[in-house]
Write a protein that binds this DNA or RNA. Structure first.
Lengths: 236, 236
DNA sequence: CGAATGCTTGACGGTACTCAAAGATTGTGG
DNA sequence: CCACAATCTTTGAGTACCGTCAAGCATTCG
């Protein structure tokens, strides 16, 4: 049974729906850092909920340029998009060791049928995911380098914080500068230089794969990205 | 009753579900070009299905920079995102006269409850919308100016074509260069110059608010954006 | 006919990209 | 435990793409 349930970031569910999720679920899976959860060019016969760890969704152009679409944290539901659209979609890669709950794709419709409430929750998650991509699109399209980095750091920090991954002001940050560059649409070199300039302002700090935000307000202002009040999230 | 039903781009529905949609629906609405369908900073108490016309979703930064997130065509379902996340979301603006089917937001859950199949379809639409935003994010993050324009033109042309809006090779194209610039994340001036260079290659043609694609293969190759096989779409 | 809106062009500057190479860090095998 | 490889970070130099500014042109509308 999923140990995330006790987390206040998620909505509690009545026993009947917990049972339904249990029978929907087909197992668990662990993926090591750097390995693929979903291959970019082969639709997955399974859906997943992230149970622990960091992962990310991405797409690559035919010449290898990569764009990270969004980051995945505990509670995120993966693979919906493939259910509904043919052809190549996106890849999902683990950034740390990731543990996942696995659901067979062909039981998705029966789940909607028997537990409409869970169907509604899944729509909730799909809509939330889309809003995050919306934000990332604004970043890539309309923010400059400094703003992009500031936005991304706050965004990732807040998300991790929200699901209880903060420890004394630090959150695990398993990404290298290439990941950051691919997420915000900059080159590796320019990302490095921007990161460096930001660091000298003393608004944040990296250490051994962890991130600490020293001056959240300054970063929020710089990135023009402010935390929004968030309701508890459904957890499938 | 919605005249889009006969369109082969959409899946036919049994009478029972049509009735359910009818009772979900609260009316119709017409919005003139340039007017707001959904205000960017005020959550809408309604959901919409586009019945005819072009619209677009967008977000603006606090200093006025605007990013168009996606374009909306007949059959697109609007407003889901607001259902599920607090705070400011996105705006929706009509680009032509747009007609919409209106649904009260508070009947969304009852609809899922009584017609799980329609709930499933709504999730389908949400996932498809997200995939489109994914593609736009790749464009803004990883394509250069020429590629961005090529991709956008093919993308909009294909989408319009798909819902039967093509007439002798032309589709209505009610956007000015500022719209294009805001969609692909370039400045107005640079968008103009890029458009001009593309036009001289003779791959496409604009005339009086209509667009014709002369060499789709060349544009697809240029933009590294290829049509994917598409199933019929559910229509709510 | 004048105002408003949108398109086009040139000039110039700056942000960000590419290329290249030198540190720093981590991991691995002898 | 050290040597070496592999990966990642950092820096500099040079360039190109794209942004900003400014002004002229075209079209539409009242």
């Amino acid at each position: 049974m999923c140990g995330l349930r006790g987390n206040p970031a998620f909505t509690p569910l009545p026993a009947e729906q917990l049972d339904a999720i249990e029978s929907f679920r087909s197992g668990a899976r662990t993926v090591e850092a750097g390995q693929a959860v979903i291959d970019e060019f082969r639709p997955s016969p399974q859906l997943f909920t992230v149970y622990s760890g960091w992962a990310f969704r991405y797409k690559t152009l035919s010449d290898g340029r990569r764009q990270i679409l969004n980051f995945l944290l505990p509670g995120d539901f993966i693979g919906l998009q493939d259910e509904f659209v043919d052809g190549q979609s996106h890849g999902v890669e683990a950034a740390t060791t990731v543990t996942l709950c696995v659901f067979p794709r062909d039981k998705l419709w029966p789940l909607f049928h028997r537990q409409p409430r869970l169907g509604y929750d899944i729509t909730w998650l799909a809509a939330r995911e889309e809003k995050m991509v919306d934000d990332n699109l604004v970043t890539a399209g309309r923010r400059n380098a400094m703003e992009r980095v500031a936005m991304l750091l706050m965004y990732l920090y807040r998300r991790a914080q929200r699901v209880g991954m903060e420890r004394d002001g630090w959150v695990e940050f398993p990404f290298n500068q290439q990941h950051i560059a691919d997420a915000i649409g900059l080159s590796l070199v320019h990302t490095n230089k921007t990161l460096r300039r930001l660091q000298q302002l003393g608004l944040h700090e990296f250490d051994g794969g962890w991130l600490r935000i020293i001056d959240p307000k300054a970063l929020e202002t710089l990135g023009d990205y402010f935390e929004r009040p968030l309701r508890p999230t459904p957890l499938i």
